[in-house]
């Protein structure tokens, strides 16, 4: 009979991915709420330091599943290895952090096992013993509570930032670490990864900016960018953008805020014509003061803004520039 919660521990080159600690917080709460045991699995090669780091947290057991075929992440290697761990341990829940790596293999793994994966959750609810997982649809505009009707294990990933890593409870004593023996002999790694690399060094370090004016799709065309540039200048702010602007090459990639760009926490983040898709929000939600200017009163950006102006940015931004200049004068 399936029991317990298994947390997938993500590491790269022997370094723990911090978002795993967020998923650990969710797992610890879930384990307490459902009176389940909690264990963790670290996959890789030479990952005992990562296992020790996790074993210091409040959980029952840490499994190390090592193999030379896991030295570099591949979807085939990770799918096969984690499948073996899950088939042996038979957990009720398998929990991940919703990282790019997890997105690359967890759906394959669940399909291979004939199970279901509720991905990118922002929380959960226990209602009369039943687990409901909260995930957002329409790019953060609507929340849903999702129920699962298959036999365990149930696979769940939590979105980055949904839980706070610093709330991970430490253990009273170090959890037991156990080596899990994999048989990877028959596993073919079809994808052959090359070295990871970064594009040309980032010219603009937005993480150091005190104030940021950020522009999104609402600006409509490249010609209109001058308007937000003027606003940034008038406010003594750096100019940044959401992904569509950089995809269109209206601004260079190093100005992009969000999951695929920079993560910032300035004193002021002024979002102009940005709807607030989750991929953008994860890069700026920790700003001290968030201002949103958007024509759509329902835009998700208003859910996290401190101040909002609903209206036409082409009328509001010029007024703001005039006002900012007035106070300088």
């Amino acid at each position: 009979m399936s029991q317990g919660i298994l947390l997938f521990v993500e590491q790269r080159d022997g370094v723990l991915n911090r978002t795993t600690l967020e998923a650990l917080v969710a797992s610890q709460q879930l384990a307490a709420g459902m009176s389940e045991s909690l264990s963790a699995a670290v996959l890789g090669s030479g990952v005992s330091a990562v296992a020790s780091e996790i074993a210091a947290k409040k959980l029952d057991k840490v499994y190390i599943a090592e193999d030379s075929k896991l030295a570099e992440y591949t979807p085939d290697g990770y799918t096969a290895a984690l499948r073996q761990v899950i088939e042996k341990l038979d957990p009720r829940y398998v929990i991940f952090s919703h990282t790019y790596q997890v997105r690359d293999f967890a759906p394959r793994l669940t399909a291979a096992l004939g199970k279901t994966f509720v991905g990118d959750c922002i929380g959960y609810k226990l209602e009369g013993g039943a687990l409901l997982l909260t995930r957002q649809i329409f790019q953060g505009k609507i929340n849903t509570d999702v129920g699962v009707s298959t036999e365990p294990p149930i696979f769940i990933s939590f979105q980055t930032g949904s839980y706070r890593a610093d709330q991970a409870a430490a253990g009273e004593s170090t959890a037991q670490i156990e080596n899990f023996t994999l048989d990877m002999s028959g596993v073919e790694l079809r994808a052959k990864p090359e070295e990871k690399f970064q594009e040309a060094k980032q010219a603009v370090d937005l993480t150091q900016a005190e104030r940021i004016v950020s522009v999104g799709r609402g600006i409509k065309s490249e010609e209109n960018l001058g308007l937000v540039k003027d606003l940034a200048e008038a406010l003594g702010a750096e100019l940044a953008a959401s992904r569509p602007i950089c995809d269109n090459e209206w601004l260079p990639m190093d100005r992009q805020i969000g999951s695929s760009g920079q993560t910032v926490a300035p004193k002021l983040y002024l979002a102009v014509g940005i709807s607030g898709a989750i991929q953008h929000v994860v890069g700026m939600k920790n700003a001290q003061t968030i201002v949103a200017i958007n024509k759509d009163a329902e835009a998700p950006i208003f859910d996290i803004a401190d101040y909002g102006i609903v209206g036409d940015l082409f009328e509001i931004v010029p007024a703001l520039i005039a006002e900012a200049k007035k106070s300088q004068g």
């Binding site: 957002q136 929340n143 849903t144 699962v148 298959t150 998700p300 996290i304």
Partner: peptide, 14 residues
């Protein structure tokens, strides 16, 4: 195997 039980607008966190 999974289905939406409820859909609703998010509560504002701020």
């Amino acid at each position: 195997a999974q289905s939406i039980q409820r859909a609703y607008f998010p509560e504002k966190t701020k």
